[in-house]
Design a protein around this nucleic acid. Structure first.
Lengths: 344, 344
DNA sequence: TTGAAAGCGTTACCAG
DNA sequence: CTGGTAACGCTTTCAA
């Protein structure tokens, strides 16, 4: 009684001198069992603290009620907040969540996906790494009938549902704002060009320039990799040109904070010499000086929506949908160059 | 062939016209199986991409190779970085990790622990919520023989191993630094008094004052709850006293950033009017202005150490150990009041 | 060298 | 109303 780690139906059955089936049914409130039998069984189950063995269940049903999440990193607020949303919704639906980080590495990403498959998760939520340009490890999931939903950085959108933010729109908005508040030459600081989010945000930026009939200059676009260092180096490069930009739109937190450091090191004033807009979360935009105007994602919501889509897919829904989560531009002190700023 | 989600030993056995046992043994390289049989089996297994069913395994061995982590929140860098460390070491040891957040709520914490038990995780890593003052849900784990290791915010240290930072020492150091660089009246901004980390860090602070023969003033200690708002409100209160402090030691990220906001709102200069030291991570301390002098935890290492301790416990190690991870004081621009600062 | 069968904990179907 | 049995996928005796 002490050695055994867990109580099984068998233990209860033999104690009560009835069959396992009876116990099982009694616990499930099956109508075919007498009230007194039910009572006896339930009482003992409670007393002995009986817990159904989830492995037996999983073996039987082939559904461990577990989903896997893969993100480029779990430390960045953007991702941890999405994870938080996923976690909460999953828990509400009695699912457990396994989280892994690809550290932006393609090989690790492949391994993790494989691990998820081996563990037999019921579904996977993925945000692809920057390095990833070959998507066959994801495609394979569709042959294996393993539900998959992408969020933020997506691919294979014809095969899998996904949740994204209104990328093009957000950067149009941000660019417009810069141009409306005194900036003349706006630079775009992006990441690896093959990523959809980069393409789309850059697209929005270029759209706005075209609409305003502002000539597009290649020298004002720096797209290499998402990261603090790249933001720093990229901004140094942008700003040390013979004819430098007077505003930078940085399409990610790390890029924005890297840019900020570069601008300060060059002893330039924000926003007077260089206006700056980032894509960052509430808290950190407010901590820095000047407070950073930024595009804010509804990260928690992205998480719950993605999870919701995945749960639907697990339940058999076949429709492939693309859910767009709106962002909003929060104007703080880093972007408006005008001496007389309108009331906020 | 197409409908079936996964290949089993049975499938391989029947294809090859041998028994399941033979296949099982062949795949395990059992010496009793002929080389050619092994070859045939392995080849087909590879071809069909056979994966052992983990549920069957877990059912058999009662060990799902899974550990549970519970943290107050997963969004704060401090925790997500610890999680990252845990995750990596767990993965290396072929364990999966399930992460849940208590959102600093006692009731939720209890539920999550119960869920972990039901899922039959092999072990649990926990950082207790601020609200928690009753530890019976953790104590219960010891009766159920479920390995448990605490990190950062700990309890029941006589029953469970834990990983902590050198709390008292770190705050002594920080207080010394403030007193050595021109501050005269140092305030301590802490959290709920029942938490060990609060007690110890406060203890270190008080120790230093005593050593220096500086009278201890109750008005200079504000301990209520860990959080941005509390940091803000607490600092406002500290600084609006008739005889306010000229330095604040904030024992946590959120408290520190809250304090920073309060100081700025009161139009006081950092560090000239009020010196400030926080306990924060690298990145964010550098983003703010002035860059924040802070006590830095080796969070990733805390994660790997905690995980390591847990794995040992799972393997049967009975010793209860308390691992202390050193912190270090990184001096930046928010703390030194002296006009002529020594070279850094 | 291989096969058969029991057992891990549960559910579900078929008999009584 | 209750019991027996097969099945889920695998390992591990025991037999041959």
């Amino acid at each position: 009684m002490n050695k055994k780690k867990h109580i099984s139906l068998k233990d209860i059955a033999s104690e009560l001198g009835v069959s396992i089936s009876t116990v099982s049914r009694a616990l499930k409130n099956s109508p075919e069992i007498s009230a007194e039998m039910k009572e006896k069984v339930k009482q003992l189950a409670r007393k002995w603290n009986y817990r159904p063995n989830p492995f037996a269940m999983s073996l039987l049903k082939n559904s461990p009620r577990m989903i896997g999440i893969i993100v480029p990193d779990i430390v960045t607020h953007f991702f941890s907040s999405i994870i938080s949303g996923i976690n909460d919704l999953a828990r509400k639906n009695n699912y457990s969540v396994i989280i892994s980080s690809s550290y932006e590495q393609y090989e690790l990403e492949k391994h993790i996906i494989e691990d998820f498959v081996n563990i037999r998760v019921e579904g996977i939520l993925a945000c692809i790494s920057q390095e990833t340009t070959d998507y066959s490890h994801f495609e394979a999931l569709s042959y294996q009938n393993i539900p998959l939903v992408f969020f933020d950085r997506v691919c294979l959108t014809d095969k899998f549902s996904c949740v994204v933010s209104d990328n093009a729109h957000s950067s149009q908005n941000a660019t417009e704002h810069l141009l409306n508040t005194g900036s003349k030459r706006v630079a775009f600081l992006g990441g690896a060009n093959h990523l959809e989010i980069v393409k789309q945000r850059k697209h929005g930026y270029l759209q706005t320039l075209r609409k305003r009939k502002i000539p597009i200059e290649r020298e004002l676009v720096f797209c290499k990799r998402i990261g603090y260092d790249e933001g720093y180096q990229g901004s140094l490069k942008l700003l040390s040109q013979p004819y430098p930009p007077d505003a930078i739109l940085a399409m990610n937190d790390s890029l924005a904070f890297g840019a900020m450091r570069a601008i300060k090191e060059l002893n330039m004033k924000i926003p007077d010499d260089v206006a700056l807009i980032g894509y960052t979360d509430e808290a950190h935009s407010n901590y820095v000086e000047p407070a950073l105007t930024s595009v804010t994602h509804q990260t928690y919501k992205m998480g719950t929506e993605a999870c919701n889509l995945l749960l639907k897919t697990i339940r058999g829904e076949k429709n492939i949908v693309k859910k767009v989560i709106p962002t909003s531009l929060i104007v703080r002190n880093s972007s408006d160059k005008r001496p007389e700023k309108p009331k906020r």
